[in-house]
């Protein structure tokens, strides 16, 4: 884990996230969102969780970002540029950030350095998924099926 990589990824991720949160043009913001999630996946790689980083790229950059772009294009007749920006949200976000920063800097226990560990293999993850985490895995399967059916029901044309 090198600090140069860390700061590079941190700057790219936070800048892209800020762009996604503030850019007035919707499609630009959606693409910055995809970049921000590539940055989050890079953090996972940096922390030694390569499998989670790959899942993040597949799910967010591959699926969710495309879904968001499609939704923007399908709802295009609406205003392309949005009006009105709620500045009280900025104040609340800054207050929450100040609180979190104070808590993190105040806690001495979180200023630990990484110890070298054995790399986590996909085999270990698969074994954990099939033994300790088999019930959560089944629940996630049911949840995803229900979400798929629910999404289809929501967007189906109503018969009149």
């Amino acid at each position: 884990m090198s600090s140069a990589a860390f700061f590079l990824i941190a700057i790219v991720t936070l800048a892209a996230a800020l762009a996604a949160a503030t850019l007035p043009k919707l499609i630009h913001a959606a693409l910055s969102f995809a970049l921000a999630f590539v940055g989050v996946a890079a953090f996972y790689f940096l922390l030694g969780a390569e499998f989670v980083g790959l899942v993040q790229v597949f799910v967010y950059v591959g699926a969710v970002a495309v879904l968001i772009v499609f939704t923007i294009l399908l709802t295009r007749r609406d205003v392309d540029r949005e009006r009105g920006f709620n500045w009280s949200g900025v104040l609340i976000a800054l207050a929450v950030f100040a609180g979190l920063l104070w808590a993190i800097l105040k806690t001495a226990r979180v200023s630990v350095l990484a110890v070298p560990v054995a790399p986590l293999t996909v085999r270990q993850i698969g074994e954990a998924l099939m033994t300790d985490y088999v019930w959560p895995l089944q629940c996630i399967g049911v949840l995803l099926t229900a979400a798929l059916i629910g999404a289809l029901v929501l967007v189906m044309e109503e018969k009149r």
Binding site: A20, A21, N86, S88, G89
Partner: peptide, 10 residues
């Protein structure tokens, strides 16, 4: 907090 900002102010 950036996510919170996006959720609250957009």
């Amino acid at each position: 907090c950036i996510g919170l900002l996006a959720a609250l102010s957009r």
